[in-house]
C-alpha cells in the first residue's frame, strides 16, 4: 500500500465556483490523502465523490439511519453529519478498508454466512458498527448487539440474521486469535 501523500484535485461534483476552500489531509483506509474542499463538504460526499469510495451510502441525511457509518479514529460515526474538514489530520476507515490482502474480515464473512444482508444498502454501515463493537466486546449478547446497532436501520432483514452474523463474527475472531498461528 502506498504511504506517500496522494494529492487529489478538488472535485467539481462537490465544489462550487467561488466558494471558500479548505485544504485537508485525511488518512483513508491507511492511505494519506490531501484535497481541497469547500468547508461545507460532508465527509460522506468527500469519500464517495472525491475519493470514489462509494461503499459508504447515504440513507437519510439527518443522522438517523447509519448507512453512512465509517470509522473516525477507530470510532464509528455517521459521515453524513461530519464535515470533511473535521476529519482532517485523522484516520478514516470505510467498508472498502475491511478486506485486507484479499481476505474478507470475519464480519464480512459472517454477514454472508448468516444471511445478514438482503439489498445490501445498509450493510457497509452495519458492518462498520459491528466491527467497532466486536473490537470492544468480542462476545456481545443478543441484547448488547441489538443496542449497538440501534443507530443503523435496516429495512430488509428484520435484524435477526444481522444479530446472528455479528455474534458469529465475534466467535470467528475469538477462534482465530486462539488458534495456533492465528492473529494475536
Amino acid at each position: 500500500m502506498a504511504t506517500s501523500a496522494r494529492p487529489v484535485a478538488p472535485a467539481a461534483a462537490v465544489t462550487t465556483a467561488g466558494a471558500p476552500i479548505s485544504r485537508i489531509q485525511v488518512t483513508v483506509n491507511g492511505q494519506p490523502v490531501v484535497a481541497e474542499v469547500e468547508p461545507r463538504t460532508l465527509l460522506v460526499h468527500f469519500l464517495r465523490e472525491v475519493l470514489g469510495l462509494t461503499g459508504t451510502h447515504i440513507g437519510c441525511d439527518t443522522s438517523h439511519c447509519g448507512a453512512c457509518t465509517v470509522h473516525l479514529d477507530g470510532k464509528p460515526v455517521k459521515s453524513c453529519t461530519v464535515l470533511a474538514v473535521q476529519a482532517s489530520g485523522r484516520q478514516v476507515r470505510t467498508v472498502e478498508g475491511l478486506e485486507v490482502d484479499g481476505k474478507l474480515s470475519p464480519v464480512q464473512e459472517a454477514f454472508i454466512e448468516a444471511h445478514g444482508l438482503q439489498c445490501g444498502f445498509c450493510t457497509p454501515g452495519m458492518m462498520m458498527t459491528a466491527t467497532a463493537l466486536l473490537a470492544r466486546n468480542p462476545n456481545p449478547t443478543d441484547a448488547e448487539t441489538r443496542d449497538a446497532i440501534r443507530g443503523n436501520l435496516c429495512r430488509c432483514t428484520g435484524y435477526v440474521n444481522i444479530v446472528k452474523a455479528i455474534r458469529l463474527a465475534g466467535q470467528k475472531m475469538q477462534s482465530a486469535s486462539s488458534a495456533p498461528g492465528g492473529k494475536p
Binding site: T54, L117, T123
Partner: peptide, 19 residues
C-alpha cells in the same frame, strides 16, 4: 446455499444509482 450477490455487497462494491 449462500447468496451469489453478497460478494459485492459486503465489499461495498454494489452498484446503486448514486454510485
Amino acid at each position: 446455499i449462500l447468496r451469489k450477490e453478497d460478494a459485492r455487497f459486503v465489499r461495498g462494491k454494489g452498484s446503486y444509482i448514486d454510485d
